[in-house]
Design a protein around this nucleic acid. Sequence first.
RNA 1: GCCCGGGUAGCUUAGCCUGGGUAGAGCGCCGGGCUGUGGACCCGGAGGCCCCGGGUUCAAAUCCCGGCCCGGGCCCCA
Length: 432
Amino acid sequence: MAKFSQPPRGTRDFVGEDAELFIDLVSKFTEIARLNDFKPIITPTIEYFDLFAKKSGVEIVQSMYVFRDKAGRNIALRPEATASVIRAYLRNLHKEPKPLNLFYVAQCFRYDEPQRGRYREFWQLGLEIIGDESAAADVNILYTTSEYLNYIGVKHFVQIGNVAFYRSFMDSMGVNSDDQDLVLHYIDKGLFSNAEKLMLEKYGEDASKVLRELYYTDVKRLSELINGYGSLLGERCSKISREVEKTLSFTDALRSIGIDVEYSPSLVRGLAYYTGLIYEVKAEGLDLSIGGGGRYDGLTEVYGGPFEYSTGIALGLDRIMMVLKEKGYVVKALPRVIVIALESSTEIYRAAVSASRTLHSSGIAARVLSEPRVSKALSYASRKGYLYAVIIGRREIETQLVTVKDLMKGEQASLHISELAEYFKQRLLDLL
RNA sequence: GCCCGGGUAGCUUAGCCUGGGUAGAGCGCCGGGCUGUGGACCCGGAGGCCCCGGGUUCAAAUCCCGGCCCGGGCCCCA
């Protein structure tokens, strides 16, 4: 065991089926994102620490990998990708016509104690839409997400919330931003009574009462509620009403396209940069969430750019892998053929390579194995799960025919190289 | 940062409680049975500082202490 060292705590090697699954899930995500017309963006794994510090609290800094590089720069391994995407947008893409739809696959790092579904090195699949104020952008994000999850067979539902209700209300009551964060924190943790108490003690009975009603009133009846407090809320009233309308139409739109969605007043997603609609994606049968996101309008301003509306989601690839492994998901393998070159002469090698190229062009995985002993080669081929072996030796060169062996049935045939493609197409078509 | 569990061959692990003999097994790997025909089968082989250090003992994988590492739970979760 000591001979080969383990990877650092919280990191993993992906080998065998895990590696196959990883690649499969990434490529399917790419495929769905592209079909929905998102464009790829690739940003660095390291960023200046300040990029993340700007929008994150003190405790977040403690769980980041931060170091000084050789020139003394303060560098961090990215704990998430949105900040980088916004930075790169402001630098490279801000003149593009809006809205701008982007997707990414990002390796991220967090220095925390590892546990189930949680690693120090993890992967996020993300979608971002910049420059679209309407809830249609959020629908687009979730529709694409849902299409992906359906594609890979992950049954899921979406919880939505809207931090703007609370924020706007607290703004109108003059609640300072630290207290706002604290209230949202309590709500997030299911400690609503603490939130209520804080409001009561520092901002009075009305504040506490309205917060309570915001929390307990169904979103469908929120409009009436808000209008009833018109005098109290002042100009924020219309802002909240707009958000209520947005949330309702968002919910309806998601349901109409077959997405399982529920409104949850306690969903506020911590103290992050979210400004309005927020969502969390849950997989059936898993208590952990597999993704989350929402509105972060104005984050561009934090990085010195003009105000832009933006929204996005990040999916935890590691957790999706966990769900699929528990379900026994198997990556569909390409049919594989081994081409056995019995001698290492130029003639035989050329014929072997030519045969394998022919197979590639039909979408069949094939490789050349140079091995003078047929028994060794076939033993290897069957243990490695090849479906067919093409054998090329002296005999085959003389007759201009190659030997094809069906490793499942044990049957064998001789045919000309030009017939190979057709032969395999007939036999492997249903496997492609 | 706190709490629990674990570390024996490439992998999965038995043995540990109740100390004792060259530390076993399954899978995998290599070779042979078989110099142009695989899987199954048979035979053989390689591969272990039993995580590290210290202690107790005639004797430690086994008991005790310390350390390192890993996993899981709490906290946190951008």
